[in-house]
């Protein structure tokens, strides 16, 4: 009996600890004036909502979506190719490849991007969406390759062989047999790489040079400003898609710690 109550208390504490920091975010997004030491705002406002619907935020949302969708698509394409090698082949240098594909997921991009920024400037890629997409491949491609490599390892290649035996060409086999078999992993990979790109701040800042304005850049500026309502409203806008995506893929990921790896780094 005692243990059960202790457990309930523990669960209550856990839920409170997870949710408490989010509470002021939600309240501030609608707070008009909220003077110290009031625990609830004196006046509510829809200014936060107006701000989120403002042209600047809408266009940053579009830029964020464009970049994240492109990055996710490219990372999946490159990851499908690399994943096949990792999942289905035994070859020399496999450990080195694993290391190379793991390192960019773990070593955060700042240290690496400082060194190559000057080349992006030199070749006209700085300040462009293309440059930002390219640099965001660095954290996403290795992640996609690792996830899809695991999926390939569980793939029964006999299905492919049968299709080929029946006269299907390599491309057709790939599209009609391999992709459907990998579909669950592919969807998960696409959503998670989308999420990494969506949350990325420092690579976008360094390569986009402030001219490629994504939502995290607007949010960062808003956090620095004195307008907490604006920052909170933008914060909610940035946080909702990732949370929805994770709720969507959560069931699939249960028990797959490698998939969570990339997520912890947003």
């Amino acid at each position: 009996m005692n243990g059960r109550w202790g457990g309930r208390l523990g669960v209550g504490l856990l839920v409170a600890a997870v949710l408490l920091p989010v509470l002021p975010l939600v309240v501030w997004s609608a707070a008009g004036t909220w003077r110290y030491p009031d625990v609830v705002p004196g006046r509510l406002t829809r200014r936060g909502l107006d701000l989120v619907l403002d042209g600047e935020v809408v266009s940053a949302t579009a830029t964020s979506l464009l970049i994240a969708v492109t990055v996710a698509a490219l990372a999946c394409a490159i990851g499908l190719s690399a994943g096949r090698a990792i999942g289905l082949y035994r070859f020399r240098g496999r450990r080195l490849v694993q290391f190379l594909l793991l390192a960019p997921v773990i070593v955060p991009g700042l240290a690496v991007t400082l060194g190559i920024q000057v080349f992006f400037v030199r070749y006209g890629l700085a300040d462009t969406v293309l440059g930002v997409v390219l640099v965001q491949l660095m954290p996403t491609v290795p992640y996609a390759a690792t996830l899809l490599g695991a999926a390939y390892a569980n793939l029964d290649v006999d299905y492919e062989r049968q299709a080929r035996t029946l006269g299907s060409g390599p491309l057709r086999t790939f599209l009609t047999v391999t992709v459907p078999l990998l579909r669950p992993a592919l969807v998960t990979t696409a959503l998670l790489t989308f999420l990494i790109s969506w949350s990325e701040y420092i690579l976008t800042l360094l390569i986009g040079g402030g001219q490629v304005t994504t939502l995290p850049l607007l949010l960062f500026a808003a956090i620095g400003s004195a307008d907490r309502t604006a920052a909170a409203a933008l914060g909610l806008l940035v946080v909702l898609p990732p949370v929805l995506i994770v709720l969507l893929v959560a069931r699939r990921l249960r028990g797959r710690d490698d998939a969570w790896m990339g997520l912890a780094r947003g």
């Binding site: 000057v118 080349f119 400037v121 030199r122 006209g124 300040d127 040079g209």
Partner: peptide, 16 residues
Amino acid sequence: NKVLGEKQAGRTDGGS
């Protein structure tokens, strides 16, 4: 810093 960086990278025109 950005203009300096462009100058270092040899962007003498078309600067951002």
